[in-house]
């Protein structure tokens, strides 16, 4: 079923249709989200205007985890069911996830300095997030380290699955241990503890980042599929002439 649904040829047709939609959604969500976040949303009763960093920090951190989860699912499907498109989806997600993790760490430092009084602390949340960044970098290095692409994919897929233990650690670090980082404001039992005037720009920016991820994923997947085709054609020509 998966084989039929996600054949590369079918993907090329479907992605061609989806690409302009993802581009449009990214721009639209980001435009409204930025306007609400930077202009309309009020200052926080405690943190003042500095709260506006939240509208990129939190969506970037969510995407860092979302991309890793997507990568782990794709890697598992690739390893177990040997689906080539899943392998390529994992490979195409890694740079986007790494970028979002970096941005979450950077904007977090920019927020931490004025509010906490420090750019960085080695608490459980910040440290586990840094580990996630290194997992992404490790994956990217490993997937390109082999002459045989299939072996690179296999080794790096195992790394992604092993590293997945870090995802629940990141999510629950703020509940399991004392941390300087605050506990969850939105995804928590009892509903969000964040006023709707601040929740809307946050959710819109999260949608913008999600649409952006899908946009870049489609672009990179198309590129990988065509690169594979080029490789096959070159091999065929070498063997034909030999």
């Amino acid at each position: 079923m998966i084989q039929k649904f996600a054949s590369p040829a079918r993907f090329m047709r479907l992605s061609q249709v989806l690409l302009p939609w993802m581009a449009g959604l990214t721009v639209a969500f980001a435009a409204v989200g930025l306007y609400l976040g930077l202009v309309v949303a009020p200052a926080d009763y405690q943190q003042g205007e500095s709260v506006r960093i939240m509208y990129i920090h939190v969506p970037a951190a969510w995407m860092a985890l979302f991309c890793y989860a997507a990568m782990a699912i794709a890697a598992a499907v690739g390893l177990i069911w040997k689906h080539p498109l899943a392998d390529l989806a994992a490979k195409s997600t890694a740079p986007v996830g790494a970028a979002f993790t970096f941005l979450a760490l950077f904007t977090g430092a920019m927020w931490g300095k004025p509010m906490w009084g420090t750019w960085w602390v080695w608490d459980a949340r910040l440290t586990s997030m840094l580990v996630l960044f290194f997992l992404y970098l490790g994956y990217i290095a490993l997937v390109n380290a082999f002459d045989n692409p299939a072996r690179g994919i296999k080794a790096s897929s195992i790394l992604v699955l092993v590293g997945f233990v870090n995802v629940p650690i990141i999510k629950f670090s703020v509940e399991w241990w004392n941390t300087l980082h605050q506990p969850a404001s939105v995804l928590k039992i009892g509903g969000p503890s964040i006023h709707s005037s601040m929740l809307w720009p946050l959710l819109l920016m999260a949608l913008a980042f999600t649409a952006y991820y899908l946009w870049v994923l489609l672009l990179r997947l198309r590129g990988e599929i065509i690169a594979n085709k080029v490789r096959v054609l070159r091999l065929r020509r070498v063997h034909g002439q030999a």
């Binding site: 003042g48 205007e49 970037a60 970096f102 941005l103 904007t107 300095k113």
Partner: peptide
């Protein structure tokens, strides 16, 4: 931004630079 602009704007600008850069590289 109530004195916090020096922290907010670098965050937004770097986010824009990284995301646009990734998009251009992918295209």
């Amino acid at each position: 931004m109530g004195g916090y602009g020096v922290y907010i704007w670098p965050g937004y600008v770097l986010t824009a630079v990284v995301l646009v850069g990734m998009l251009v590289a992918s295209i």
